[in-house]
Design a protein around this nucleic acid. Sequence first.
DNA 1: CATGCGTTTAAAATCTAGTTTAAAACAATA
DNA 2: TATTGTTTTAAACTAGATTTTAAACGCATG
Lengths: 202, 202
Amino acid sequence: MAKSKNTEQKIFDAATELFMEKGVDRTSVRDIASKAGINLALMNYYFRSKENLFDTIFTNLVTENTRELLKILNSDMGLEEKIRSYVNAYIDMLTANPLLVPFFMAIIHRSQEKITQMKVISNLYGTEKFSQQIVDEGKKGTIRRTDPSHFFVDMISMITFPFAIRPLIMDRNEMSEEEFNEFIQERKEHVTEVLLKCMMPC
Amino acid sequence: MAKSKNTEQKIFDAATELFMEKGVDRTSVRDIASKAGINLALMNYYFRSKENLFDTIFTNLVTENTRELLKILNSDMGLEEKIRSYVNAYIDMLTANPLLVPFFMAIIHRSQEKITQMKVISNLYGTEKFSQQIVDEGKKGTIRRTDPSHFFVDMISMITFPFAIRPLIMDRNEMSEEEFNEFIQERKEHVTEVLLKCMMPC
DNA sequence: CATGCGTTTAAAATCTAGTTTAAAACAATA
DNA sequence: TATTGTTTTAAACTAGATTTTAAACGCATG
């Protein structure tokens, strides 16, 4: 029982990195083993199969990274403050983990049929309370009447999409890593502003 | 020389469909051959390798589908009309071809290093004229001063991202195919409005 | 009509990847 | 120390993918 947790963890970590970097299908079990510095068969010993290892990792990634965001979305903040914190927290999370979005995009494409994974991701977006808030404030006249589903899609689009096409943005604008990060930091303010402005009761 | 063009085309078409549907890595040359109704080795004869076939298809997909959009972006329309046509044309194009975005996202992840080297990519976003227009009108005061690179990213994010996460949106809102398409059609008006509103000179 | 050329097919060789097996090493404990 | 359960190793197995080679086909031209 000695090194068990240790080895299992090493496999888990190595696989996570490789999956995110090269994609699941382009990562072989042998890659994982060699990166983790363990014997090939141990992957099968601890996780029954590559696909099962992937499921484990995937679920873990989603739940780990969305806890905070969900909390904000379902908090009691006012609409403006909520939007601002959500945008900031989301962008911070993705900045710390820039491969997350491209990885997710690839997974959605890869496993459309795998409903379970879709369900896991759907958790990402527990928006009932937030939607209600938008409808309510629309009725009160505090903001323009706004369709919450479109609004939410706008929001996550503007937040996450730049990470999905990062290489293109960098290439197009001849940006270095740092310049791209600056660009992303600027977007915190920018996206918040766009979202608030378009629901202002003109 | 009899069936040459024919066979080459059959391979090309079959591969295009499969790549878009299942992803490049999960499509085997056998799949392609059987779908195209040709012998396994013919893929190798016409396109030297699977990877080379993929490059050909990818380049073709990009150029075919961006011609129209680029024309609009570099036309002499006024800003408002230009934005409206661009959003409409882009959404129409993706509606006709709903796998395009998820496919691209997967490709960006799959071949990051390769993609920036591909010259076709720069074609995707030839935005000089459009950017200039935004800067000019900002100076004139017709619109708020707006950073063109953020604006352009906002625009393509809101247009394309919903297609990338289509299964999630459908699952979350319990939508049928048709309902999703309606949702997307609504977005033409919605996105245009958001974009125009946020550059209005308050 | 046979020669040559582009095209197509078939079979074999090579490689890569996931999984399994069987035995060895190890650790804990009775 | 002997026993037992866990962990590790090396090697084998299986399946499939890709590439190569050579042979067959069909047709137009000399």
